[in-house]
């Protein structure tokens, strides 16, 4: 399946703002909501997530030009990576460790920043390294 490549970058920009708020307010609730959005993006597709819906209905009609289409799998994998960071952060909340919570969120913040500003998918890049290290197949 092909999706508008601008959609995931829009989602990454919104995620960036959300994660800044998560860290600043140390908000477990906000992280839980963001993790839910990542889960939707990872398992149903980024175009099915709330950010994808906002992009499709409110942002895309106002953009000029036609966006390049891309395979849904790379941004979907990026959502999965975000989801995993979110889960680790929430585990930190569950065990009472604000350090785990903040560090996991910080990693997700870095990934969202690189994606939205530099169009660099950290998870996609790490995929091959993880396969080489036999940590995933």
């Amino acid at each position: 399946m092909q999706i508008d490549a601008r959609g995931p970058r829009f989602g990454a920009a919104i995620t960036l703002v959300v994660l800044l708020l998560v860290i600043y307010f140390e908000s477990a609730l906000l992280l839980a909501i963001q993790t839910l959005f990542w889960a939707i993006g990872a398992f149903a597709g980024p175009h099915k997530s709330p950010y994808g819906f906002v992009f499709k209905t409110l942002v895309k009609p106002r953009l000029k030009g036609v966006g390049e289409l891309e395979n849904v799998k790379p941004p979907q994998f990026a959502q999965l990576v975000g989801f995993l960071f979110g889960v680790v952060g929430l585990i930190g909340v569950a065990i009472g460790s604000s350090t785990v919570f903040l560090i996991a969120t910080a990693f997700a913040l870095a990934a969202a920043f690189l994606n939205s500003v530099f169009n660099f998918c950290l998870g996609c890049e790490m995929y091959l390294l993880l396969v080489r290290a036999r940590l995933i197949r």
């Binding site: 350090t99 910080a106 913040l109 870095a110 690189l114």
Partner: peptide, 21 residues
Amino acid sequence: MNHWLLIASVLALSSAFGLFL
């Protein structure tokens, strides 16, 4: 933990890495 320091550190390191790339 100083949250502003953490945010600034993450953004600074990410920016440096992004520019490197």
